[in-house]
């Protein structure tokens, strides 16, 4: 899945209004990066839209870092 990691990094960066290179992939979205619940939903929806996939809502709780988000997305991207 070439490019997925960079694409999701850019997508998250746009939503949380940070430079993509500033995001530590293991930084906690909520504690370290100022992500709120609406932004988390936006990240989920933006990934679904980009890859035309459906990620079950119960997976939302796992989207706490960039690395975990990429890992969850990869489970569903074919």
């Amino acid at each position: 899945m070439p490019g997925v990691e960079e694409d999701i990094r850019n997508l998250v960066a746009t939503i949380i209004e940070k430079d993509p290179n500033e995001i530590n992939p293991d930084a906690n979205f909520f504690k370290d990066l100022g992500v709120d619940s609406m932004m988390a939903l936006e990240i989920l929806a933006a990934i679904e839209k980009k890859y035309k996939i459906s990620i079950p809502e119960e997976k939302l709780a796992q989207l706490t870092t960039l690395n975990q988000t990429i890992a969850v997305a990869k489970e569903f991207i074919k």
Binding site: M38, M39, L41, E42, A45, A46, K49, S54
Partner: peptide, 13 residues
């Protein structure tokens, strides 16, 4: 156009 699943929830407010 994209499907109801793919709307941006951030624009709903």
């Amino acid at each position: 156009t994209e499907g109801p699943r793919y709307v941006n929830p951030g624009l709903f407010p």
